[in-house]
């Protein structure tokens, strides 16, 4: 095994170009498990810890440019206002120790259907900026996940930034696990209200081969909100409407039975989470509060 330690971004890209099979390692929270348990023996590791840009973030007018290696703990502590859904999701990631080390770039690189950041990114709307010595490109997060643990990156590309739409309305994230902390998602659901465009976006985790949006649910809800004038009136949502949204969200799942949960349960739980998170975000919207909703828990 070789251990490549580029001192900066350009060097990292050059190394990746020269050794496309080199496996990037940043937080190490996925890859080191595979190495420790002898599940994987990459020929080369490409350490990204020394690349300063990856640790930086910047809040712009419409988007947040998030470095691939910004640890979840900092997202929770510093980006709760601009990216409430992602911050909430980051707060559910594994343990405090892991949140100090892991970041969104690694989550995207692994592209597990259970990655906690994915539903929040899908709901917020985001683009993954991948770069290689050939240049850079932005991949919409909706198109990023191409299969179970597969993504749209070319072999010579590295994830540099994730450009995430700044919240213009309330966002939420919920995940089911059979433990009250440090648990991998049985399934997860993210939702973001976008009052600026009068749309609603969602993300479902761990209930299909890839993270997915509940497109039919989003369309239904956007239409229903518009038709009923809810955006303007700020009226409470009728339970039937939330129920229909939940059912459509459940319908977007294509889950499997595995050791963490049954397919039936996953579909059911996604529906419940969809209904609840819609309720929380809508209540928050009615109160005029963008950002976090009523659930608390210190970081």
């Amino acid at each position: 095994m070789d251990f490549l330690r580029p001192a900066g971004w350009a060097e990292a890209l050059a190394a990746k170009a020269e050794h496309p099979a080199a496996v990037p390692i940043a937080g190490g929270t996925d890859l080191m498990v595979e190495i420790n348990f002898d599940h994987r023996r990459p020929e080369r590791l490409l350490d990204l810890n020394r690349v300063a840009e990856l640790q930086e973030w910047e809040v712009g007018a419409d988007t947040v440019r998030l470095g691939a290696s910004v640890p979840y703990a900092r997202i929770v502590a510093e980006l709760g206002g601009a990216l409430p859904g992602l911050a909430r999701a980051a707060h559910t990631v594994a343990s405090p120790q892991i949140r100090n080390r892991g970041g969104v770039g690694g989550n995207l690189g692994t592209a597990s259907p259970a990655g906690d950041a994915h539903p929040a990114l899908l709901a917020a709307g985001a683009e993954v900026e991948a770069e290689s010595v050939r240049g850079s490109r932005r991949i919409p997060v909706d198109e990023f996940f191409t299969g179970v643990k597969r993504n749209a990156l070319a072999p010579d590309e590295l994830i540099k930034w994730v450009h995430i739409k700044r919240a213009t309305g309330p966002q939420e994230f919920a995940k089911v696990g059979t433990r009250n902390a440090m648990v991998i998602a049985v399934c997860a659901f993210g939702i973001a209200l976008h009052p600026d465009t009068r749309t609603v976006r969602t993300g479902i985790g761990s209930a299909a081969p890839t993270p997915v949006r509940a497109a039919a649910a989003e369309e239904f809800l956007a239409a229903a909100l518009a038709e009923g004038g809810f955006w303007d009136s700020g009226r409470a949502l009728p339970p039937a409407l939330a129920g229909q949204f939940a059912e459509l969200a459940a319908g977007a799942c294509n889950p499997v039975d595995d050791v963490r949960g049954s397919a039936r349960y996953r579909r059911h739980a996604v529906g419940v989470m969809a209904r609840r998170t819609l309720g929380w975000t809508w209540e928050s919207y009615r109160r005029g509060a963008a950002g976090s909703t009523s659930g608390e828990g210190a970081a």
Partner: peptide, 10 residues
């Protein structure tokens, strides 16, 4: 559900 934020009492 704890930190996973699945219920606020519902």
């Amino acid at each position: 559900g704890g930190l996973s934020n699945t219920t606020h009492g519902e």
